[in-house]
Structures are given as C-alpha cells and as structure tokens.
C-alpha cells in the first residue's frame, strides 16, 4: 500500500494570510497538474461527484462566478448559483439567514462574493460547510492572487518553485483593492519583492506594516520589474477627491505605449479585469505580447479547481 502524501490546509480559504509557504506552493502545483488535464480533450473529472457547491454572489461578477462554476463542473460537483442583490445593510435577508438556508440545503461549500469586508469570515462562523472567499469588499480576493502568482510563475519560474527574487509592481487603487491585499500577502509569501505604485491618496494609512516598497513614480519603477500588475481604477473615486481627474490619473499612473517600452524585455503585464481601457491601461498594452491578461482568465479555472479539490476532495468536516 502506498502512503500518499496527505495535506493539511485550512478548512476555509478566507485570506491568503491563512496559508503558509508550503500550502501556497501546493495549491499552485496542484493547479499545474489540473491545467494539464484541462488541456486534454475530455475535461471532466469525477473527483467531486456528489458535492454541492453554492456560488453565493451579493455582487455582480460574472467572470469570477463563471470561473468558479467551470472549475466546479470540471470536477463534477453540483453547482447552485445564488445571486442575492444587496446585503443586510439594505435590509434584505441577512447573510446569516442565507447561510443557514444554504446549509439546510446541504451545501458542502459556499463560494462567497460580497460587497463588505469580512463577510466571508462571518459566514465561516455560521456554516458547517467550507467557505471560499471570492472577494469581500476591499479586504481580499485570495483566488485572484493565486491565479496571478500561477500566471507569473508559468513565465518566470517553474513548478515546485516560488517567486524568490522576482520584482512585481502593483499599480493603482491599492486602498480599495482586495486584489492588491491578497497579492501583497501571497507574493511576499512566495519571496517576491513588491513595489506599490499609486498616488498617496490611494495607499492605505498603515501601509508601513506591509512588506512592500512604495513609489509615486511609475516611470522609475517599470525598468526594474519582472511583472507589473495594473489595478482597476473606478472613475467614481474622482468624486471623492482621491485624484483630480481621470485624465490626470491616466497621465501619471496609467500604462501606455511609452511606459511599456520602459519595461525590461520579457516582463509581464497583468490586470485582474475588468479593464478600463484608456484609464489605467491603454489598449496597446492590454493587447501586447507582454500582456498575460487572457492567460490569467484561463488560469483562473485551473487554480480554482485546485482550491476546490484541496478543500473539498477529502474528508471535510471530519477532524479537519
């Protein structure tokens, strides 16, 4: 009898902060294996047959929902999509009641997207099922960070390795970005050097505790990085005086053709989507050979399959 390698992962995936180095690598390596299977003509695996996964989305995010749905279905799980507009803030059914309802329906896992930070942490306290945070307010979006790291590693590293010594710039609205928070934690866990580039208004107070460098000058940073991750900037931020105008933002912090030429050869351009073309990234950059934005989307399915397998593929709820 062969003693397989058994894995200890946290019960839920709420924050990248819940993972250690080995666990993060395990997810990436598992995703590599699953990506190869996804390339095969038959894309369905029986692994999660009989498991029920609920996509509980309190926010519109078609791309994330579809990615999780595809991942769950390729592993033969039953998928229920539950779109609930508004939270208890707007006096709909409370998140807790929704959680209890889903549990009564026998959900093994809930993939939660919610407009408020910490919603996934709260949900985890109310349900027996596995909770996967698919983006909570301005807190975290762990699977996005995992797929970003996976994409970067495919180009700049190799299976089994981390991102030691790689330099990644994250540019844009860090203050309101769950993608940035998860990426800072994960890239740091994997040994990368991180530089945040944004106007000071869009960098949180308290950032001094983060393992990052800060720059207000994108042109100085770009020549030194192995990858640059552009964050979505919402134009409504302008109304709250985070920056004077979208034009000024674009001029000072947007990625355009001239700036792309500052990047070293082979450096990658990432964007979590959806993009504001012409605001934080120009069309030429988004569609350039250095852009891996579409790969990110494809890799999302493999990474989410890995997360679903690793959290749901064993004896969940039994001493886990």
């Amino acid at each position: 009898m062969t003693p397989e390698k058994l894995i200890e992962l946290p019960r839920h995936l709420l924050s990248i902060g819940d993972l250690n180095h080995n666990q993060a690598l395990l997810i990436l390596d598992t995703a590599e294996e699953l990506a190869r299977i996804s390339d095969a003509p038959i894309k369905k695996l029986p692994t999660l047959r009989g498991r029920t996964i609920v996509n509980l989305f309190f926010e519109d995010s078609t791309r994330t929902r579809i990615s999780f749905e595809a991942a769950a279905k390729r592993l033969s799980a039953d998928v229920i999509n539950f779109s609930a507009k508004g939270s208890s803030v707007s006096k709909g059914e409370s998140l807790k009641d929704t959680a209890l309802t889903l549990q009564a329906m026998g959900a093994d896992a809930v993939v939660l997207r919610h407009p408020e930070s910490g919603a996934a942490n709260r949900l985890a306290g109310w349900t027996n099922g596995v909770v996967i945070n698919a983006g909570d307010g301005t807190h975290e979006h762990p699977t996005q960070a995992l797929l970003d790291a996976f994409t970067i590693r495919r180009h700049l590293g190799s299976v089994g390795s981390d991102l030691e010594g790689k330099h990644i710039a994250i540019v844009g609205d860090v203050l309101h970005s769950r993608v940035a928070r998860s990426n800072v934690l994960l890239l740091n866990l994997l040994g990368a050097k991180i530089t945040l580039v944004a106007p000071p208004t869009l960098i949180p107070v308290g950032v001094e505790s983060w393992p990052v460098n800060i720059s207000y000058n994108i042109d100085e940073v770009l020549p030194e990085v192995d990858a640059v991750m552009m964050l979505r900037v919402q134009s409504e931020r302008m109304k709250n005086s985070f920056f004077p105008s979208t034009r000024e933002y674009s001029r000072l912090f947007g990625l355009n053709l001239d700036r792309m030429n500052l990047l070293p050869k082979g450096a990658l351009i990432l964007h979590p989507g959806p993009m504001n073309r012409g605001l934080e990234i120009s069309a030429e950059c988004a569609d350039s050979v250095q852009s891996v934005i579409l790969e990110q989307v494809a890799n999302g399915v493999s990474v989410r399959m890995a997360v679903l397998y690793l959290l749901l593929g064993g004896n969940i709820g039994v001493g886990a």
Partner: peptide, 18 residues
C-alpha cells in the same frame, strides 16, 4: 468609517476612522 484607521484597517480593508 468602520474602525480605527491604522495598521489593522489597512490589513482588513475596512474604511478608517482617523
């Protein structure tokens, strides 16, 4: 504002009460 503005609010993504 949701909590004290500082290291913890930065981490938790909750808007700060400075």
């Amino acid at each position: 504002a949701q909590m004290n503005e500082g290291v913890v609010s930065a981490k938790l993504g909750l808007s700060g009460w400075p």
